[in-house]
Amino acid sequence: MSSAKEIVSSFVEGAPPGELSDVIADIKALTVSTPDLVNELSEAFEKYNEEQFITTKLPGSSQQVIISSHSSLGDGRYYDVESSSSFAFDHKTQKASAVQSYVLEGAQSDLVKSTLKSLSTYVREHFPNVAYGAYPIENDSKVAIIIVSNKYSPNNFWNGRWRSLYVFDPASGQLEGSVKVDVHYYEDGNVRLITNKPVSASVPSGTGSGIVKEISSGEKKYQEELNRGFSDLSEGAFKGLRRQLPVTRQKIEWDKVASYRLGQDIGGGSSRR
């Protein structure tokens, strides 16, 4: 049988975009008999933040930086190439602190910087509230590229996140990755869309601009697939869930609804007097 810690950890790891604080509040309400349980969830918080590419602002800056395993320096510290900084991150509160200078060096540093330059132009044209990053990984033999765009509208009962992760291998010229979309709608119900689209491409030039060109092409195709899918759902499956017109095949005139005789006028049958 799963322990209480394992159960509530699964709640944390399944939290919808922008709703971790709400999940924490719910956990506290459900575990009042063990008030210290939330303090034992540091591993779950770290896993969630790194997998979701949570973004945070550095103190005194408006720039969003990304939390991921690829940007981790260990001991709760992460780095960002564009701001040339490293920082501590509290996984429970999702706040950054203790900013220090950090200069990227190594065999892939030039490729990382050129990729970031091209990526900046691309993401700012296509994403709202976007953060992006590129990092040398696997002993400086490959480059990881991340794009994350959050859009939260809790007053309208929905939140969403777009996450892209790509790994480029300079030795083979191959780009492999995936695009994940996670949208939660919870007004008078609870609907969640989670997608995962694999992406694979060849980058013959091996340059930062070449990498971003392939990313742009793949994400454009996926966006078009999503648009077609939503259109098909709207015109097909969703329409089948609810009759568009009453059985009379005529729209109800709501300003005259008081004058309808329910059985005869709306239902189409005879009414009893």
Rank of each mutant, 00 (worst) to 15 (best):
K239D: 04
D232L: 12
E125L: 11
K151H: 10
T207W: 06
E235L: 04
V203M: 01
V181M: 13
G210P: 10
D232H: 07
S62R: 13
V257T: 06
H126S: 13
E6A: 02
V130I: 07
I7N: 11
P17L: 01
M1I: 14
S69E: 15
I24R: 11
G173W: 00
A88E: 07
A29K: 14
S71M: 02
V179A: 08
W162H: 09
L119N: 02
L73A: 08
S62N: 12
I54P: 00
A201T: 12
G74E: 03
F238I: 03
L175I: 04
K92V: 02
A171Y: 01
K213R: 14
S2T: 15
V130L: 13
G208L: 04
K95P: 01
S164W: 07
S234W: 08
M1K: 12
P198D: 05
A96T: 10
W162A: 00
Y185W: 03
Y260W: 11
S153T: 07
R249H: 11
V212Y: 03
V203H: 02
R242S: 11
Q223D: 08
L116G: 04
S259M: 13
N227E: 11
E219G: 02
S209Y: 06
G269K: 15
K221R: 14
Q52E: 14
L58S: 00
T31N: 05
T34W: 07
F89G: 02
Y166L: 04
P59A: 05
Y132K: 12
L73Q: 07
K142V: 02
A237P: 01
R249V: 06
Y185R: 11
L104N: 07
I137H: 04
G60I: 12
S10R: 15
L116V: 05
R249T: 01
F157D: 00
V257G: 00
S205M: 00
G177C: 12
E219V: 10
A44H: 00
V23W: 05
G18Y: 06
N159R: 08
D182L: 07
D22V: 15
V148H: 03
Y260C: 02
V12G: 05
S259A: 13
K142N: 00
G218Y: 05
G189N: 11
Y135Q: 05
F89Y: 06
I145M: 06
K180I: 10
S42K: 13
H91F: 15
S10I: 06
K47N: 09
G106P: 05
L20F: 03
E125R: 14
K221E: 12
Q108T: 06
Y260K: 02
Y186W: 11
G229Y: 11
L37G: 02
